[in-house]
Each structure stands twice: as C-alpha cells, then as structure tokens.
Design a protein around this nucleic acid. Sequence first.
RNA 1: GGAGAGGUGGCAGAGUGGUCGAUUGCGGCGGUCUUGAAAACCGCUGUGCCGCAAGGCACCGUGGGUUCGAAUCCCACCCUCUCCGCCA
Length: 422
Amino acid sequence: MLDLRLLREQPQAVKDRLATRGTCFSEHIDKLLAIDTERRSAETRLQNLQADRNRLSKEIGKLRSQGQDSSAIEAQVKAHAAEMQTLSQLSTELDSRQHDMLLVLPNLPQPEVPVGETAEQNPVLRLWGEKPAIASPQDHVAIAERLKLIDQERATKISGSAFVCYTGVGARLERALLNFLLDLHTRDHGYTEISTPYVVKPEALVGTSQLPKFEEQLYRIDRDDLYLAPTAEVPVTNLHREETLQLSTLPIKYTAYTPCFRREAGSAGLGTRGLIRMHQFDKVELVKICTPERSREELELLTADAERVLQILGLHYRVIELCTGDIGFGSAKTYDIEVWSPGQNAYLEVSSCSNFEDFQARRMNLRFKGEDGKNRFCHTLNGSGTALARLYVALLENGLQPDGSVLLPEPLHDYFGGQRIS
RNA sequence: GGAGAGGUGGCAGAGUGGUCGAUUGCGGCGGUCUUGAAAACCGCUGUGCCGCAAGGCACCGUGGGUUCGAAUCCCACCCUCUCCGCCA
C-alpha cells in the first residue's frame, strides 16, 4: 500500500513512476484523491460537531448534578444528531472506498530500476559458472520417467493435470533437497527455521498483497473462508502483522519450507511441461523484516544467499534484474535467479528476490519502534531459496551422464544417500 | 460437535451511565542520592486521524442500538482459554 500522504503531496511524481510499469493509474489516483478530499472535509465537520457535543454534554452533567434544568442545552445537542449520523456514515463509506482503491495500486519501483515493458528487457546482471558439456541433452521428463522418479499419470488421476507424484528415489531426492536447503540457510546463513500452516486467512493475503487483485490465482476454501498459501511468504511475513517490533530484534531472518498452491489461471500451455509449472510445488523461502535504512543492502545479501544454493551445487545460472514492466505488483525491486536447463536449452527461474520496502508492512500494520521512540513501518523482503521442482529439473538435466544415469553434486550425496541415480 | 470462563494501555489488573483515555502495580525511560551498583525517592511512559499551529476527534474484541452523554446498559457476531466428545 502506498503512503496516502505521498500520494496527496506528490501525485504527479507517483503517477509518473507507476506509469513505468506500463499501466496508467492517473485517473484512478485522481478519483482516489477526490474521495480523500471529500472524506477529510466530512471528518472535519463531524469532529467539530462532536467537540460541541462533548462540551455541551459536560455542561448538562454539571447542571444536573446541581439540580438545575438542562433541557435547553439538550435540545441544542439534539439539533445536530441527524447531521452527525449522516456525516459519520459518509465518512465511514468514503474511508472504505479510499482504502479499497489504495489496495489495488502497485508499489513504486525504485528509481534505478531499469524502465522496460517486457521480460525481454530485463538486463542480465551476472553469470555464474558455465554451461556443462552434455553430448545429447535430455528433457527432465524423459530422464525422470526413465529412472522412475515421478509419476505424472497417476498424479493426474488423483488430482488433475499439473500435479505430480514423486516416487521411490525420486521422492527421496525431493526430501534430500529440502533438508539440504534448510540446513544451508539456517546453519550457514543465519536464518531461523519456521514451519507454518499451509492454510491462511484472507487478511494475511491482503497483507502480502496477493489479495484483492490476484484472487483467481489462489485456491480458496469457501466453507471456512481460508486459502491455500501460494508461497511461504504469506504465512511467514504475516507472523508479525499488527505488531510493533523492537529495533534490537531487527533484521529478522526466517526460512521456511512449504508446499505452494497456485491455480495458474490463464497460463495453460505456458511452459507447463513436466515439473516446471505445477499447481503444487515445494519451495524453501527466505523472508526478512528490517529497517528502511537496511533494506537495499539486505536484498543484495538475500539474493547472495539464494545464489549460494546453485554455487554449492555447481549449477550454471544467471541473475537478471526485472525491469519496471515485469516487476511484481508489490515489489520495489526484484532480482530473478535463473538456472541453466540443458533440456529446455533455456534459463529457468528458480528464485525471485524482492524488496517490498514498506508496501506490505503498511498493509499488515507491521512497525518497529525507532531510536526516537516513534513507530515506523518496517521493510519486508523475500526470495525463494529456492523452488525445489525447478532445481530438481536442473539437477537431472545437468547431471545427466552418457550412460543415462544422473550424477548428483557432492554436497547432496549424504542427504540423498548416494551419488548417482540409475 | 457439547459445556463453561473470558476479551481494558508492554504485561498484570481496577473500573457498571457524566473532567475515564481510563485508578493502581510491574516493566521501561529520565533524574536525585552513590566511587559504582542496588535500594529509596521524584517525574515521564498507548495508538491513529484532522490541523501551519493552538488545539480537536476517535479508539476499552468487532458491528449495531439506547441516551444530551457509553469502557460502563441492550442486541448480534468474532476470537481466546478450560473441560468433555471425536480424531492424525
């Protein structure tokens, strides 16, 4: 959520920066500000009447305690009752409309975020490692089916398309990755492990800004007014919603494994092959809560923590910066980490690291007490560390040996209980 | 699912119609005293909104209602806890 005060004081600057996302919010903002003006004028009028009422009511109390007649003053207060009722309703309604309008405005990209319209314009910041020399690359689905690591057909039978079942050593590899990632981030990178509920209330989704705009991407449990979490970002960041944190506790660094549930509405046929885009996938997430002064640096550190996963596993990857047209709704700045997939002959997004600045904190009223004792909004960040299914794809395709087996990177051997899948 | 208890400021805990935004204690901050610390004593110590400011308004789980006036009365709802049942 944007700062209403900023919107009021510098509407043009906000419009200009939002326009770099490729959508014009000018009309929306004008309407919002008109409501704001009307709301404040109603509020001011109402507050004046309330002040009068409070003053007169005290006099009534005084008169009555002295046994004197107060009917004249009572009539005076009553005279404004109807107007106060109207103003109060008006102000509540305008406030709610204004709030709704504020919730659908995206975050301002940081000034240095490259301006662009599509993913093609995302600059590549750096490359790590090299593409492996594989004589005849194979698609991960071919590899996984040959080695009986996954069972797509039966997963479809029980849950529908775009769900997968890992089987045997395939399931074991998934579990090995999970443990490897959580250990890495807790032991080496200083994150605290969290295990959260996978089902969340709508407020939590509003807090991290999946709602109200992206309802159709979520699995909803109607009967209980709950949703399946699309990412651990939601339960983990919302752990501290409605809290005022002590400065000394910041930055907070959490890591969590959760399955992620996404309807992927409208993306049928888009890279849906195999494990790449599914309705349910496993992910280890990194979340940070920090002061505004620290968030830029924390984003760099968080991205480095996610990159470290691929470095340790020896997987070639690149880091790109999302341009203004491709950046997520709530993000002020985002880096994507893309691992090399020989089978797709393309880079695959395995992590997206974002600084939300105070956008989410405002929505969830997440603050900290500053050195001067004043409450300020925290900054929140998150990034995948990493998505498991796509890492799985990369491991199979990059580890493919001439004999058709898959050689795993050394750091996974103990976790997996072996070096090779054949 | 059944029965009961309860939701007030960082915490504990008063307050049942009129200077109550809220007594008090603890905690926290500042000060006096002390070589230093403790103890003692004194003072301060919630949040949001409107306003250039002075100041004003709102908030005692949420939403309605009664009243000139509601933390206090009425109605509905939500949540938490305890016990029982069921269950991984």
